[in-house]
Nucleic acid binder design. Structure first.
Lengths: 183, 183
DNA sequence: GGTATTTATAAAGATTTCTTTAAAAACTAG
DNA sequence: CTAGTTTTTAAAGAAATCTTTATAAATACC
């Protein structure tokens, strides 16, 4: 049972039906807003350490949180700031987790060329001179995993922590049964 | 007799008694001129590969040449370009070599801690965690040399190639007599 | 009057940034 | 309509940049 550590959660929500980003950029000094470069306003919090993108539609994306509680805290803090700017924010904004990035460790080293052959070249992407990790995508749960020679792995694309665990478990069992994890 | 290879020559000259850098910046597209950042206009040539700084006083610095002929060629090319912009350039501008950077190889490895002790801690600067080279300055000729564990050295500060050779020769003989060059 | 700004250049370590993956948002460009 | 723009994050390896030295020039800064 490889332990899974969540490193990043991307979640979306909606604060209102519209936001005047120019006013927000002026009021919140730490805000970064360069509309000609990107339509969203970037607002970073140091605690929890997150970065949230606010859009004119009132929608927003929170990134950087390592647990769901921090996502909720971030959104509540920003909602309070918006209230003070007289924005009529929604009472209980729905928060949707869009992506979870997590790491784990298979507990042994991998010969990625060997793994690529065993999993089937049509199922993986492995170009060591471009990137040291092997990309392995599975459909259920729908995630992409990056496998490294050290045995460490990165799992991204899941929307539930349970799916991260499931994906890692499947990978671990498959590689174990193929005898590809070298201790 | 360690071979000396000149890597960079910095030379100064004067094209005229004044230059309108704004006009030059407009006319020569490849010119870089940001007066609020630096008063000189940067003009690079691909052949010889050099970078010359032009100032409003008409003076200029040529950098990057690996031999004196390339310094002269660079200055002649720029003088011709200025003539075409109706600048009344001097006929035979005096060229003064201000600095020569060269490398050489002592032919054996050095234990820099050992070298620092032998040359005298008051005569060298050696802080390996800040920079891997040992700095050794001599008065005659007045140059600064950077010594590396590999035995390779960098000599800078000389205004004549003969002085580079002389400095390297002095260093080589001193270290050899002290038995510090390990083959 | 010192220091900073800029340019080039080598040396050999240290450090930083880049590579890849996923996802949402909204806006531009082809 | 698709691709790129931005944000975050880990992994490991490559690549880029930083460190130091000298030197002129002309500005700004303290």
């Amino acid at each position: 049972m490889p332990e899974v550590i969540v490193e990043n959660i991307v979640a979306s929500t909606s604060f209102s039906d519209k936001l005047d980003l120019d006013v927000i950029a002026q009021s919140l000094e730490e805000a970064e807003y360069e509309p000609e470069q990107f339509p969203g306003l970037v607002y970073r919090l140091s605690n929890p350490k997150t970065a949230t993108l606010l859009f004119r539609s009132g929608k927003a994306n929170c990134t950087g949180a390592k647990n769901i509680e921090d996502v909720r805290t971030t959104i509540n803090i920003i909602a309070e700031k918006l209230k003070k700017l007289n924005v009529d924010v929604y009472k209980n904004p729905e928060i949707v987790i869009q992506n979870i990035v997590a790491i784990s460790d298979l507990g042994g080293e991998l010969n990625l060329n060997e793994v690529a052959m065993a999993l089937g070249l049509e199922n993986v992407e492995y170009e060591p001179e471009q990137f040291p990790g092997l990309v392995y995508r599975i459909k259920e749960p729908k995630v992409a995993m990056l496998l490294f020679g050290s045995g460490k792995i990165v799992c991204t694309g899941a929307r539930k922590i349970a799916d991260v665990s499931l994906a890692v478990e499947k990978l671990s069992q498959e590689l174990t049964s193929l005898g590809l994890i070298h201790h």
